[in-house]
Amino acid sequence: MNLLVCISKTPETTAKIAFKDENSSFDTDGVQFIMNPYDEWYALVRALELKEQHGGKVIAINVGDSSNDPVIRKALAIGADEAVRVDIEATSSFFVAKQVAEYAKSNDIDIVFTGKETIDYNGAEVGGMIAEMLEQPYFSFASHMDHDGSTATVTRDIEGGVEVAEINGKFVISAAKGLAEQRIPNMRGIMMAKRKPLNVIPAVEAEGNVKVLSYELPPVKGGITMVDADDMDKLVKLLHEEAKVL
């Protein structure tokens, strides 16, 4: 099976969020970047498990410039066989999806994995777009997937529950918690990653039709009101009369 895993880079989870150039861009100064947890912990690992079970190869793909290479190398260290970087700034979800879909089309990919969402823009956009471009079924927020070589059984999150579906043939899946267990790269993996191919390819033409004009910080909360532990009637009163939520 040829398995393609979309890898994105996001600020480390405790990073301080600040903006520059009159709030028009994210200030990356001093910010450490990591692989998006959903891509790393769940999508990539499940792809590796499938390969271990059925053979084939796992290709990690990223759309971005060379500053993404450390994150791509990590995917190789965890176990991806090869990596592709589409050498261009990822300007919008549509643009990213287009690059991935073109690659999947010309490389006979059986399953495209994405993360559930990136934890910076929280879009959950790219996976569905790739599926539409490939005209394939899309299983969003998958928390479980078995594959016997011809039929896959996918459990995915739906409103207030889960749905189980069976599919023959190619598909796109977005990985949620539960799909796999995080793997930590070991020394051997890190060494081997240096020798694995990281192919840099040019982007195909595509338009980005959404752009961020500016950023702002959310309004700050007013101060906290502490309530005495012996006076829960007071808390209920505040929630009822002041906050109007009970």
């Binding site: 929280n122 959404v210 961020v212 004009l213 500016s214 702002e216 910080l217 959310p218």
Partner: peptide
């Protein structure tokens, strides 16, 4: 909201 609610982005759609 972006960055898990730590900021708000104003987006423009030009299609």
């Amino acid at each position: 909201p972006v960055f898990s609610g730590k900021a708000i982005a104003e987006c423009e759609i030009n299609s």
